[in-house]
């Protein structure tokens, strides 16, 4: 089983980002996803910085995948996406259909990202014709759905692509044209001052009775809980999961990687270090029992 570092969903200062990945080069992860997936205005690192980081990480033996923006609206964003695909060399994580189309036209292998909305074996097979090599199911898809999908794929004579599941981190739940961080700080999106940079783990949102609920991260909304599928490792193995995705968090990432690295080599499932992912078990994503 491989470990991947998912794309950094938050906006960190340039030096912090570079330091994070310099450290990550020494971590026992096999795959590193690089690039901005949430907001095209976040430019602490320019495209050439990401490319340079990609080269350094590849030098350290990592497979580097460049991740695309989940919501593409502006012409400038399309232009950047075109350059990302043209950059060549590696795979792309396609997080919307624009990226799928560009990869398909240029014959670039891609990873189907979690915001791509693939829910069944036929859709997956169609995307494999277009160049999909690895698939990260959307957050809603748990063990039972993946088992059925895999069975249907194999029964139809097809083969699964590499399967990567989100094993650690806050789940990306929604995207909007609206920037919720700007809204919370009462500034216009076009004059946001890049304030996401002050919130390296997103901006906490709680219910009116003080229960932590969601995280605002620019145009993205995440669940509050840092989910952890470590204890479910035996089930993941049985499903043929090839890659465990760990989403970068502001603190404790080296420890989380070490934890999963130990776990993947152990026959025993590890102790829980994060929240139970309810989606995996076919229910609500969050814990609702303690909600009130």
């Amino acid at each position: 089983m491989k470990l991947s570092l998912g794309p950094l969903q938050y906006f960190w200062p340039r030096e912090r980002t570079l330091a994070f990945y310099r450290e990550a080069a020494r971590w026992p992860v096999d795959i590193v996803y690089l690039g901005e997936t949430v907001c095209s205005k976040r430019r602490e690192l320019a495209a050439r910085d990401w490319t340079a980081l990609a080269a350094e990480l590849a030098e350290s033996g990592k497979q580097v995948v460049l991740s695309s923006l989940a919501l593409v609206e502006a012409e400038s964003e399309l232009g950047a996406l075109g350059r990302l695909v043209e950059a060549g060399g590696g795979w792309i994580e396609a997080n919307d259909l624009s990226a799928v189309q560009l990869c398909r036209l240029r014959g670039v292998p891609f990873v189907g990202g979690p915001s791509l909305n693939v829910y069944n074996h036929r859709a997956l097979a169609l995307l494999m014709e277009d160049g999909l090599r690895r698939w990260v199911p959307g957050v809603e898809q748990g063990e039972a759905l993946l088992r059925e999908l895999r069975a249907a794929m194999l029964a139809g004579g097809g083969a699964m692509p590499e399967l990567e599941v989100i094993a650690f981190g806050r789940l990306p739940l929604a995207y909007s044209a609206r920037c919720f961080t700007a809204r919370a700080l009462d500034v216009a999106k076009d004059q946001c001052g890049f304030r996401c940079i002050d919130h390296p783990d997103g901006l906490p949102l709680a219910t009116r009775e003080g229960r932590p609920f969601l995280r605002i991260n620019g145009v993205q909304v995440q669940g509050e809980e840092v989910t952890d599928l470590g204890p479910e490792l035996p089930a993941l193995r049985a499903l043929g999961v090839d890659v465990l995705r760990l989403y970068p968090q502001a603190e404790g990432m080296a420890e989380a990687v070490a934890h999963f690295h130990l776990a993947r080599r152990s026959p025993q499932p590890p102790p829980r270090i994060g929240a139970r992912n309810g989606y995996w078990h076919g229910g609500p994503g969050m814990r609702v029992d303690a909600a009130s």
Binding site: A70, N117, E140, A174, R178, V221, G223, G278, G285, V288
Partner: peptide, 21 residues
């Protein structure tokens, strides 16, 4: 809908039931 349609899991995060599925 303020979220991109087809890309909102807020309902299923809380209830398990979603627009997509």
């Amino acid at each position: 809908c303020i979220m991109v349609e087809g890309r909102c899991q807020l309902s299923s995060y809380v209830t398990g039931a979603s627009p997509n599925r």
